[in-house]
């Protein structure tokens, strides 16, 4: 499939805008002209695709049309695209989110033979934007591990020297390696990553006498510790 970008010469009648999350929080919805197919572009949280679309379209050259599925653009890691026909949008009441803590941008597009034409977006001064940053809240628990020592008349809790960090397993697909890390006092410039594999496991044990602090580099992630 060939991909070309064109200026949108009729934004009043060919449009896709006002992107937002659905009430359920699991779908992406937008306003578009009747029967309009759309290309959804997912990018890292801090950046939308409006200004980069030409580069993205160039990077898609030769790819099969990603109909109803997200495909990563080879030359732009972290950028995923999905072609959403108007019929799919109507049938599914929107388009499923791939992950959160990122930005989704929509573009009008149409298939002409073996060419997919993607139309550029025009920004307006209204509140209707062609992109939406989807935030994600992640609840993390950090617990000091102790053990009970001493005779039965004088039991006391003693530090084991370990902390347990509990990570939500259901957020595994929403985070990327490198997004989340922790630090400990005394070595705050050392950021130890919490990877997707750790999220899948659910627990991480850290040997330290200072409480680890979990943080993120992704502005779209909010860590609730």
């Amino acid at each position: 499939m060939r991909y070309v970008m064109r200026e949108n010469d009729d934004p009043a009648r060919r449009y896709a805008t006002h992107v937002r999350g659905s009430r359920s929080g699991q779908q992406l919805v937008w306003e578009s002209s009747p029967g309009q197919d759309v290309l959804v572009v997912q990018t890292p949280y801090e950046r939308d695709a409006v200004d980069d679309i030409q580069e993205i379209v160039a990077g898609m050259e030769g790819m099969a049309l990603p109909v109803d599925c997200y495909v990563e653009v080879p030359v732009k890691p972290g950028t995923w695209v999905r072609y959403v026909p108007s019929t799919s949008y109507a049938r599914n009441d929107g388009c499923p989110l791939r992950t959160k803590a990122c930005t989704y941008t929509v573009f009008c597009c149409q298939v002409e033979g073996d060419t997919c034409v993607v139309y550029s977006q025009q920004m307006t001064n209204t509140g209707n934007l062609p992109y939406r940053r989807i935030r994600l809240e992640v609840d993390v628990q950090v617990r000091k591990l102790t053990r009970t020592v001493g005779p039965f008349w004088n039991r006391r809790e003693e530090d084991t020297g370990y902390y347990q960090i509990t990570l939500p397993k259901d957020r595994m697909n929403d985070v990327c390696d490198g997004d989340v890390y922790y630090t400990v006092a005394g070595a705050k410039d050392i950021e130890i990553p919490l990877t997707r594999a750790m999220f899948k496991q659910g627990y991480v044990y850290v040997q330290t006498f200072d409480m680890p602090v979990v943080a993120t580099r992704n502005d779209g992630l909010q860590i609730n510790q």
Binding site: P11, S33, T124, T126, N128
Partner: peptide
């Protein structure tokens, strides 16, 4: 939508 000199630009 925006209005330009009294005319809606759309959509």
């Amino acid at each position: 939508c925006e209005v330009d000199d009294g005319v809606p630009v759309g959509p």
